[in-house]
Design a protein around this nucleic acid. Structure first.
Lengths: 164, 164
DNA sequence: AGTATTCCCGACTGGGGCAGTCAAGATTGG
DNA sequence: CCAATCTTGACTGCCCCAGTCGGGAATACT
């Protein structure tokens, strides 16, 4: 799960598509103008979104793109996965952490990144395009809780820099 | 909150430092060998960690680096923040989303990324070096819950690709 | 048929940051 | 003094993002 501006552009465009389409296709040129994204760049992104099965295309005059799924079932995580190429998570071989186990105690951090990836994916899976259109992204009500983390759970803002 | 290999290296090194130091300083050369990271590159990282106040340095023979804080109070989020330079979150001006409000409906996604950043930061703040050393990173017991997201909370693995 | 509109595809480019190297200088223990 | 170690700065190669360009294919409209 990579988080770059690329994925953000894709989500912006998909939100625009979701909120402006009333059943008829939307031309990329419209989205490009509204979201102030280069048209040619958008074409690249939507090529991937189409291959990922997230949008359907209609060619010819009056054509454009349509959501392939109902707005409530279009998850943000799917968009990002479709657009961003996967990143090699640690330095371990994908799948089996064979490279980790070779010299033990090396990838103590492996579990951490894996779990973090799960957390991010889980959160983004819980947000649909409908949620964003309805502004239901939920504010700063802390949601993550470390099930077994006593002790340093206190003083949450001592050295905590502003979340960027 | 940026997530690159750079931050991972830093965390790996800090975990190594935490688990191998018994009060006496650890030379970077040792960490470099154990973690298979270039020594010169580690030097750069630890320069930032030192400026961030996460480690203390001891010069001269027998010198090296020490954790500046107790192992339980060294949070992963602090390490990553210290090492990775901040990323411009959206395309909005940092702080006030003035650029967003200019043409409305553009940054509907703004809240999403901001909230996601909070989630990540919150999770990484909840993990200390002590947790990692004790392998208490907690497995795949889903922790995030969308407080107000009924409906599409079901079928969690239908199109969910393998978490990478 | 012809034309305009739109998607589709591949190649190309400039820049930024990561990963890593190299070469010095500063500081301290033996 | 000398060796070990941190400290600093400049330098490099490379990959990928963001964006551009030129053309080609499908379709609606006249």
């Amino acid at each position: 799960m990579k988080l770059s501006t690329k994925g953000r552009y894709a989500v912006m465009a998909m939100v625009d598509l979701a909120s402006n389409s009333k059943g008829q296709p939307i031309a990329l040129a419209d989205i490009a103008e509204r979201q102030e994204i280069s048209l040619s760049y958008l074409e690249q992104l939507f090529a991937k979104l189409r291959k990922g099965g997230l949008v359907k295309s209609v060619r010819g005059p009056g054509g454009g793109y349509l959501l392939a799924h109902p707005i409530e079932e279009s998850r943000v995580s799917d968009i990002i996965v479709a657009v961003d190429e996967p990143i090699r998570a640690t330095r371990c071989a994908p799948g089996s952490p064979a490279g980790c186990r070779s010299n033990r105690s090396r990838c103590l951090t492996h579990d951490l990144w894996e779990e973090l990836g799960n957390q991010i994916h889980l959160y983004l899976s819980s947000v649909s395009l409908a949620d964003i259109c309805n502004k239901q992204v939920l504010g700063t009500s802390g949601v993550i809780s470390h099930t077994s983390a006593p002790g340093h759970a206190a003083d949450p803002a001592s050295r905590a820099s502003a979340a960027e």
